[in-house]
């Protein structure tokens, strides 16, 4: 392990077929599996909103996001499966059985269109910031290359999210109130997506899978979005929010990590329904996969 860590510290990149310590393989695999699961769960939620989205323009952007998220999941499951820890069907089985993790934000229900805007704006920004920090210095080559693709598409989603946010911010009082309610519901889950402060011995940092500490990424997000939401006349649902004149920084006060812990144990407000829905969806669409397999078997090469 020492020689391997020296290799990683020197900027070494690990490829799928290379020898690697089992702990490293498992840590990278678990990270990619959680990312893949999150893309799939996110894509399914996004899809639910296609018929409910107001206006053709927004509907196209929801369609775009849905196809991208599912596409990211598709790529990530392939990269994860190539690591030889679990097969793709095993990963999906574990997800539908509630045995594996996906991001906290997908354990809550999006109730209104305002929630979808808040997710596109606040949550996607948090997810993008985390992915960029992994991409910057990730020692596992196949994941790093796929992340490059994913990040450039997430950048496109950010533009769509900003477009949605501006439209609702410039809307009627009713629309603005709808969005304020959504900020109140989604601000904390989005912030908790970064996780608690990184531990000093965090393996993901030591092995150059992550490049920045959770608290650094989280703080950067706070410094960007608190003033931005204020500038559009919205409030932040944090009682202890204050601006430190000495450091020119916003501070959201103490963070309650209990909701995050619950989601990681599949005990979030919407966890059970989400997992059941994803599982039912998989079963309902079995005939499509079978039909395609048969079709591809009969098409001459």
């Amino acid at each position: 392990m020492d020689a391997f860590e020296t290799f990683l510290d020197g900027g070494g990149i690990v490829e799928a077929d290379d020898d690697m310590p089992d702990d490293y393989r498992r840590a990278v695999f678990a990270f990619i599996e959680m990312h893949a699961n999150s893309e799939l769960m996110g894509g399914l939620t996004e899809r639910d909103w296609i018929p409910k989205t107001p206006g053709l323009r927004h509907k196209m952007s929801v369609l775009a996001k849905t196809q991208d998220e599912i596409g990211h999941g598709h790529l990530l499951y392939m990269v994860a499966a190539a690591m030889g820890v679990k097969t793709r069907p095993q990963m999906l089985e574990d997800l539908f059985a509630g045995k594996s993790r996906f991001h906290n934000v997908f354990h809550y229900q999006a109730v209104t269109w305002g929630d979808q805007v808040a997710i596109a704006f606040l949550v996607d920004a948090a997810a993008l910031a985390s992915q960029q920090a992994v991409f910057k210095n990730c020692s596992y080559g196949p994941y790093r290359r796929i992340l490059k693709r994913i990040i450039s598409e997430e950048g496109f989603h950010m533009r769509l999210g900003e477009d949605r946010m501006m439209r609702i911010a410039e809307g009627t009082d009713v629309q603005r109130q709808l969005f304020q309610d959504s900020i109140d519901r989604w601000f904390w889950p989005a912030l908790q997506l970064f996780g608690p402060d990184s531990k000093p011995d965090d393996k993901l940092l030591r092995w150059h899978i992550k490049s920045e500490r959770n608290e650094v990424l989280r703080d950067r997000w706070v410094q960007k979005f608190v003033p931005m939401l204020h500038s559009y006349g919205f409030t932040i649902p944090a009682d202890d929010l204050f601006y430190d004149e000495a450091t020119n920084q916003w501070d959201v006060g103490p963070i309650d990590w209990e909701p995050l812990k619950k989601t990681l144990a599949q005990g979030g407000p919407d966890s059970a329904r989400r997992i059941t829905e994803a599982s039912n969806n998989w079963n309902r669409t079995a005939w499509v996969r079978e039909a395609l397999e048969q079709a591809s078997a009969t098409v001459p090469a």
């Binding site: 991208d68 599912i70 392939m78 395609l292 079709a295």
Partner: peptide, 8 residues
């Protein structure tokens, strides 16, 4: 090609 499914 891996499957007839793709991102878009």
């Amino acid at each position: 090609e891996q499957s007839m499914f793709g991102p878009s």
